[in-house]
Design a protein around this nucleic acid. Sequence first.
DNA 1: CGACGTTTTGATTTGGATCAACGCCCGTGG
DNA 2: CCACGGGCGTTGATCCAAATCAAAACGTCG
Lengths: 256, 256
Amino acid sequence: MSGIRPENIEPCETSDSCLAEKLSALAPVDSRQAGLLAALEEERCEIGPGEVLYPAGEPTEKLYVLKKGWLVSELHDGSGNRSIVRVHHPGDIVGDSQIPYTVTPYRAVARSEAIVCPFPRENLVEVFKRSPRLSALLLTVAMIESAEQEDRARVFRRNSAMAKLALFAQQTFGRLKLMNNLLHDRFHCPLTQTDIGDVVGMTSVHVSRTFTKLEKEGALKRHSPFIQIVDEEKLSVHSSYLNRYNELDLSWLPEA
Amino acid sequence: MSGIRPENIEPCETSDSCLAEKLSALAPVDSRQAGLLAALEEERCEIGPGEVLYPAGEPTEKLYVLKKGWLVSELHDGSGNRSIVRVHHPGDIVGDSQIPYTVTPYRAVARSEAIVCPFPRENLVEVFKRSPRLSALLLTVAMIESAEQEDRARVFRRNSAMAKLALFAQQTFGRLKLMNNLLHDRFHCPLTQTDIGDVVGMTSVHVSRTFTKLEKEGALKRHSPFIQIVDEEKLSVHSSYLNRYNELDLSWLPEA
DNA sequence: CGACGTTTTGATTTGGATCAACGCCCGTGG
DNA sequence: CCACGGGCGTTGATCCAAATCAAAACGTCG
């Protein structure tokens, strides 16, 4: 391994505000607005793979901007099954879907070396008060994620195992690429096949079999913790993937 | 059929702003704010069951506040399959998840006599500019729906047919009850079993069989277009349903 | 090296899909 | 008023994709 490979660069780590970076990947954000967002990320802490950011049942007053690494939000039901509700990548606000509630049923666990910036939910109030544009952008991001969620729900509930894994690979790659445009065709995936199974709703056994199938088809390749997108077309035949970060129209947003 | 049954009352129909009504079911909204929301609903139009509100591929510059009735957002993929992405009830903003995009891949179809209030996406800008509180409330609603979506994704992708239908019934009832607290234990469901199958990801044949199973269990009952929740407990054993409109903590919202 | 976690491979089982037929209800038109 | 037809729901028989159970191969780290 000589030289720095783009999949190992975490652009967020060094920049002032990871959130500002994500939002400005969508629409221009001026320095005053970036400042408002950076104020959310003043505190920072590091956690390693396997470490629990917060346990299930935790009060939701804190949110976490993810600066580096992967986290998962998982739910353990009564009968000992685990389900991975969401996979978090740099730029995400971990815990955002639990903003309206007093406690969260989800547990957040790091899946790689990660840096998060905790901030109290109340800090968002400043953003809403000071910047209509950022308010609208936050809603926009929520809607983009909602659209992706709809895609997952649609594919995961009905389609074949091939479709599920194809969508997983494509969505993950698309999201990572937003924050790291140096990524070419491969990304580091710190999830085990059991994890992936709990994301898409199938057993690890079948994840393994299906990955090999996709590999034989020439749709993607695996080298240990990396996944390489080989043939977008072939994957899309299964998943009918839409990149929800493309074809955006944000011209209607309030001015800066 | 003597007298007015609560499941036939549509409280939204008469009120000034259906959206204000929904938001104020969550947190207090003053009259100025209600006015801002009412401005979104000035225009109104009626459509009947089966009528298409907008076809797939339509530009997304318009949004629709649903005042009365049910609509579905459906997606037809290349191979002739239909998937119902979302079911809309009074108070919803139809098309909201497509706000960031130029066109929507979804088609919106009425499933009952319905009244919608179209407004241009740009009108939201006024709300963002004038009211931090409403901005935050809109995000809150988005997050509540996101949480419900997570629940569906989790149950629909893995669990049994019983779990799927149980969750469908409970979520639907919970949502309807928010806007119509006269509802006791039954609701009018204008969807066919084929529709329901396309919502939860199973065939109409299996929807039929599974409903009869749930009925035998004493969990719910069907009388033609009505569904009656008989035993919440029994349903929850299958679905592990959480009412996402309960246990809210909105104390952090910006003041009015 | 041994041990544990992960991935792979094989054999068997199963829940839901699929295919097909039938009954029911309701609206339409003769 | 009844005959017909079409949409919807039910029921039965068969099939298949993925789950489950089990064991072996692989990798990595103490």
